[in-house]
């Protein structure tokens, strides 16, 4: 076995690890919080609170 063969196995292993980390956290998050909270994001929040647009007469 050469170094690059070990690196190939390491790449497979790390890929699986990153995939697993995302998957486990995803399932944990979805089961902990309600769908209402998770999908409550709305666009324009900053603008709605910080800006006031007025048409020039």
């Amino acid at each position: 076995m050469e170094l690059w063969n070990y690196l190939e196995y390491a790449a497979w292993g790390l890929s699986a690890l990153f995939g697993l980390l995302m998957l486990v956290d995803w399932l944990k998050t979805d089961s902990t919080y309600s769908e209402d909270v998770l999908t409550s994001s709305r666009e324009g929040e900053l603008e709605a609170m910080a800006e006031e647009h007025k048409v020039k007469s």
């Binding site: 209402d36 909270v37 409550s40 994001s41 709605a48 609170m49």
Partner: peptide, 8 residues
């Protein structure tokens, strides 16, 4: 924000 965002 005011539109009901709980997590943004």
């Amino acid at each position: 924000g005011p539109h009901g965002t709980k997590v943004g």
